[in-house]
Structures are given as C-alpha cells and as structure tokens.
Design a binder for these strands. Structure first.
Lengths: 117, 117
DNA sequence: TTGACAGGATACCAAAAGGTATCACAACAT
DNA sequence: ATGTTGTGATACCTTTTGGTATCCTGTCAA
C-alpha cells in the first residue's frame, strides 16, 4: 500500500502551519510558546499542531505539564519525493539550455557522450 | 514583496489535483480528456484545472473549441525552494552519509574544488 | 443555417476547515 | 490543600471547498 501523502500535503496547505514549521525549525517549543508568535488563540494553534502531527511534520514530547513540539523534517521527505517526480520536466528544459550554452562556449564539445565516464 | 506560495500549495493539497498534474505530465490534454480519467463531472475537473492554473502549475492554450491543458513544472519551483529550506535539518545527516559513500568509492576525490571548471 | 459538441460560468449543496469560547484535567508552587 | 498555569477536548460559528446540475457561449460539421 502506497504511503498516504494527503496528511502531509494537507498540513502544508495552510500558511500559518507553514510558518509554525519554520518557527519550530529554530527550536523546540511548547504550545503556548508557538501561540505567542501568532494572532490566534492557543486553541487554534493547538489544532494546527495536531494537523502538523498527523502529517508527520512534527513530533511531540511531554515535559512536566507542557507539551514540547519539535520539527520533524524527515516528514517532508515523502512530499519532496513526490515533487521530485517532476524533475524530468524542467530538467529536460534546463538541460537543453545548459547544452546550448555549452555549445556556444565550446563548439567542439559533443554533448551526446562523454568518454571519460 | 515575497512570492505568494499559497496558490501553489493550495493547488497541491487535493489528491485529485495531484493526480491531474501527473496525468498532464504524460501529455497535453483537453478538459474532457482529463475528466475521462476521473469519477467526476467535467465541471468538477474544470474547477480543479482552474485551481491548478491559479497555482501556476499548468498552462492552457486554445485549439479550436477545446482548451488544452499542459503541465507547467516550473510552477513547482517555488514550492520546492520553500521545502529546501528544511534541507539543513536532514541534510546534515544525509551529507555525512553521502560523503562517507563517496569516500569509499573514490578516496582520492577532493570534494572541495575541481580545477577544470 | 442548424444541430451537435467542447467549454465556461453560475447557483446551489454538503462537508471540511479555520477560528473562538469554554470546560475539564494534570502538574507545579505556595 | 489550594490556587495557578499549561494543556486537551468539545461545542459552536462562519467561510471555504469539492462536487453536481444547469444554462449559456463558441466552434465545427452537415
């Protein structure tokens, strides 16, 4: 069964959640800490954190009565992998451009094969 | 003013739209062509195409009475760029691994600089 | 010219999403 | 023990979203 990308993409689809992610990149933070950076109630932030957690984009641990939220960059991997499927489409254009430039700079270079490979 | 990522991320947040994107990777298709691949009305597909267009993920051109939709992989670039900010968090681990592998494969290679450049 | 056919646009509906307010609970300090 | 503080869960509201049905427009073929 294929990995379900939906929770991850869904988590990334909200600007506040993307901001939270980058915020957590700086350091592990409690719910209240995160909430302090936004014009939202703590409850709203908590919901966002839940969605991020479901998307596998953060991990949490309890310390005393507070819940610390940490960025889980590994969770972005499936998303990046999915996106990388499209590399073939701009790479072909980019490769063509690069080849054209190289052709101009060095007309004797044959782009088809390189022998020292 | 920073580029607005929201339309792109929003466009990617729906599974049907992600499927459409990959479908259009194969070839340029009309609205009806796309709709044929889904259990949705043509109108619903058209809405998805609108969202994808707003996200800059596809381009369209008219041929006669039909509208051809084409993948615009370049539109994914801002998304990939945003995600690449998080490279610093798993790359430190990945770079170590990659360096280790390269070291095994070619111990004489110095990754810092190449002279014939 | 007159149909047929591919697209667009709009109104409308049900469900999901973002948000607040509120209550209940656990843990810390005194 | 008791009050305070950080959190979790729920009910509720409004807006957005995915979807359909419907109507209108433009274009191709006879």
């Amino acid at each position: 069964m294929p990995f379900d990308l939906q929770p991850s993409f869904r988590a990334l689809s909200d600007p506040s959640r993307r901001d939270i992610l980058r915020l957590l990149g700086a350091q592990e933070m409690s719910v209240a800490d995160v909430a302090q950076h936004f014009d939202m109630t703590r409850a709203a932030v908590k919901k966002h954190l839940n969605v991020l957690d479901e998307g596998g984009l953060i991990t949490t641990r309890k310390r005393g009565r507070e819940r610390l939220n940490r960025l889980n960059a590994e969770g972005l991997r499936p998303v990046v992998d999915w996106l990388s499927w499209f590399d073939q489409f701009w790479d072909q254009r980019l490769d063509a451009l690069k080849a054209a430039i190289e052709e101009i700079e060095d007309p004797n270079l044959t782009p088809k094969e390189t022998e020292d490979d």
